[in-house]
Design a protein around this nucleic acid. Structure first.
Lengths: 232, 232
DNA sequence: CTTTTTTATGAGGGATTTATAAACGCGAGT
DNA sequence: ACTCGCGTTTATAAATCCCTCATAAAAAAG
């Protein structure tokens, strides 16, 4: 079994920073593993090879640059340096040692995410890889276009997938009929509510969902539909 | 093959900055060409394709982001944004629009050079990184342009090879018709879906692949194609 | 309780998408 | 000039999906 979920290794000795990064990255759909020291980082890297490494330069045991060197000796995985040091020589040294980017602390979560996307995009070759959506026992791998419900793979048509994707992306919120229709069918079909009923019915059939006691898609009479997110 | 010298295009309306950059880059051995506006930048890009673009966001005619968009619609050349704006949203927007790096003015010449090296390294690295691609019982030797399926050598034409290469490089993911056409045929044939059908048919014939029960190339109706990666 | 609105679901026709063969134009090489 | 391979176009049958319609159940309103 291989999902296209992207794994990121954080190597930083400050637990607070690791926490902050983990939360920021997991909400983006990334899988996060941590290491509090250079040696642990290298060991983690060997055991669970990540697609990207976030590396702090100030580590207790090994120097961050040494860790980078070791990584580069065995892999060309993208490495982004996170550091408090604003020294230009430091940046140049790290970048020339093989780092793909150098972000000075403090940094915003949004900028870091965008830089991660940029680095991954450059490395994978142009196509930005999208994360895996999860909602209860439902997983949606957008780039693979694969859906599993309660462990079982479910084959969906294009429109079915679009509806499920839209609902899951806004899990918990009620999406009005007209909003869904406007988004997926276009403004001219905003009032063709029947379209939706048919497709939601097909979706529920494929997901083994009972409209009377919905596990996934719930109906809000007169308003629209919503994806249930019982305890994410 | 192009000349060994690496060409960099600077797009910035301030002559002073262009001068500063030109001096800094030429001492590093780069060939430098300049443009003072967005339109001139795009025209220069078309006439003398550079290996890297340094782009200022604040241009007199076109918006910098529009220039980036135009560049991205026809090339995946590395683009680094130079900007006085430190706004985080601005950075995120530029990076997500396809920029490879975002450097805030004022910056040091040494750091800029190092970042340029890092971006170029990452860009060149990913092409030379995998000399032979493997996916199931399919092997693709990129430099030799040789393909074997289930042990047997398969002779492919240029376009057939490009399609198979692109699909295999993103094995598992669904690549949309328009993405494949845009990448291999160019933006103007983005909607000529029939091209693809013919070539995918030829590929499947040469690979002995049955469209009804595909072993290699699977169709996602209404979306695109994907290479199957059963248990890598 | 009756009426009206909203929802669920099955089934089939029509339109779109796909697979495949085959013809055409073009340049490279013989 | 001829052939051959390749990329492009056209044509057509088959497969698939989207939409429509009909009907029944459920919910809301009167």
């Amino acid at each position: 079994m291989k999902s296209s979920q992207i794994r990121i290794l954080i190597v930083d000795d400050e637990a607070q920073i690791r926490r902050f990064l983990r939360i920021a990255l997991e909400t983006q759909g990334y899988e996060v593993i941590e290491a509090a020291s250079g040696r642990e980082g290298l060991s983690q890297f060997a055991q669970h090879p990540p697609q990207l490494v976030l590396l702090d330069l100030g580590l207790p045991d090994l120097d961050g640059k040494q860790v980078l060197k070791d990584l580069r000796s065995r892999s060309n995985v993208p490495v982004m340096i996170l550091s408090v040091r604003e020294d230009e020589d430091e940046k140049v040294a790290a970048l020339d040692a093989g780092a793909n980017d150098y972000v000075a602390k403090p940094f915003g979560a949004a900028e870091l995410s965008a830089r991660i996307r940029a680095v991954l995009r450059a490395h994978n070759g142009h196509q930005a890889s999208q994360p895996v959506l999860r909602c209860g026992d439902l997983t949606i791998d957008v780039s693979r276009r694969e859906v599993t419900a309660a462990g079982k793979a479910v084959k969906l048509s294009k429109k079915e997938f679009e509806i499920l994707h839209l609902l899951t992306h806004n899990a918990g919120r009620v999406l009005t009929h007209s909003y869904i229709l406007h988004t997926l069918w276009g403004p001219e079909h905003e009032h063709d509510t029947q379209y939706l009923r048919v497709y939601v019915g097909q979706l529920r059939a494929k997901l083994n969902d009972d409209p009377a006691k919905p596990h996934y898609i719930a109906n809000e009479p007169g308003v629209g539909y919503r994806m249930l997110d019982h305890a994410v």
